[in-house]
Amino acid sequence: MRIGIIGAGALGGTFAALLARAGHDVEVTARGSGLEAIRADGIRLSGGYGEVHARVAAVEVLTERPELVLLCTKAQDAPLALGRHAELIDGVPVVVVQNGLDGVQTAERFLPHSTCVGVLSIIAANYTEPGVVRVTTTAASYLGRGGGPADDESRRIAAILSEAVPVIAIENFRGAQWTKLVVNMLNAVPAIVGRSVQDVLRDRRLRRVVAASMRETVRVGIARGIRFGSLQGLSNARLRLFARVPVAIGQVLPWMMGVRMGNVPNLGSTQQSVRRGQPTEVDHLNGAVVREAILAELDAPVNEALTVLVHEVERIGEFLPDERVLAEVPQ
């Protein structure tokens, strides 16, 4: 199958390499040094899915109409990327592989004739060198749309992607997006202090901050009427219980996540963006919690403070001491 992948970063590069290994005709878009590296030497993938050296076509904008599109840009880059490709891909099924809550709706707005579905990927991958991706944690990905059961088209697309990496079509995708948003609360603190996710979660004081941001996210979701989807051992019932317990007890949840990550340092996608000098997705992660809290007529002080600190790190280009997080983030 001819597959176009818009954005060949950590996840885009992972999907591109594995889909090419499965025999698909893959064309990817990239920019700057990433584009040059892929054109010169392909995508080199290592880690959990083995060693893959994928020679794929690399362009700034897709040149051929594909049969399937994966949108793997950062959430804030999606409108520009979709606008550049709308004429070519409108009517083609599109898989949005992004963090945040609004990716599928954004794609539908630009591509009214396309079937647009979302993928929630729990794969952890480091992309700190152009054209080179290391998978630090393997996991199934989850595909769907809306709040109802998985439909036939979702199952068809999941089967295609599963030729490369396990992808499961699920019900209540909207609820699963919120569960993934809770998981993504692992990103901000490591990006602020410049330490791996595992290192942060081994630190009792910083782990408490992470737990507080996760609990606040769950509470906002409950206020917004969300039934959380089951993902990575997290269920609606478990998250609702987590929202009621003190932070001191709730710390066990992020601690267990850190244990499951293993020993290979995971920087988190937000920190990787900081290290590359690129804008982060914090406004679509912690910032999304703040916006949803406003809609629920609530405050989200933990995630608001973390959003501000990540933006400070972006602005000054330096990580901050642990004490700044502990002093400025309410718990």
Rank of each mutant, 00 (worst) to 15 (best):
residue 153 E to P: 05
residue 19 L to N: 07
residue 11 L to C: 08
residue 42 G to T: 10
residue 249 I to L: 14
residue 169 A to W: 03
residue 306 L to H: 05
residue 248 A to P: 04
residue 62 L to E: 03
residue 175 G to C: 04
residue 328 E to T: 02
residue 79 P to H: 08
residue 180 K to E: 04
residue 114 S to L: 09
residue 239 L to E: 00
residue 187 N to K: 08
residue 66 P to G: 00
residue 141 S to D: 13
residue 92 V to C: 10
residue 261 M to T: 00
residue 325 V to E: 01
residue 292 E to R: 14
residue 319 F to R: 09
residue 4 G to F: 12
residue 163 E to I: 03
residue 314 E to K: 04
residue 264 V to L: 12
residue 237 A to P: 04
residue 167 V to L: 07
residue 34 G to A: 11
residue 52 V to D: 10
residue 327 A to I: 00
residue 114 S to V: 02
residue 33 S to R: 15
residue 139 A to H: 14
residue 258 G to M: 10
residue 241 L to M: 09
residue 132 V to Q: 14
residue 80 L to E: 15
residue 240 R to H: 01
residue 185 M to T: 02
residue 130 P to W: 08
residue 289 V to F: 06
residue 251 Q to N: 03
residue 92 V to A: 08
residue 67 E to H: 05
residue 47 G to W: 12
residue 209 V to R: 02
residue 21 R to P: 07
residue 67 E to Y: 04
residue 171 E to G: 15
residue 79 P to C: 01
residue 251 Q to G: 06
residue 102 D to K: 15
residue 158 A to P: 07
residue 202 R to G: 01
residue 317 G to F: 07
residue 51 E to L: 13
residue 59 V to L: 01
residue 292 E to V: 01
residue 31 R to P: 13
residue 95 V to D: 13
residue 107 A to Y: 14
residue 183 V to S: 06
residue 246 P to W: 09
residue 57 A to S: 14
residue 298 L to A: 08
residue 299 D to S: 14
residue 310 V to P: 04
residue 254 P to I: 07
residue 33 S to Y: 13
residue 322 D to K: 03
residue 270 T to S: 07
residue 159 A to C: 05
residue 209 V to H: 05
residue 93 P to Q: 09
residue 235 S to Y: 14
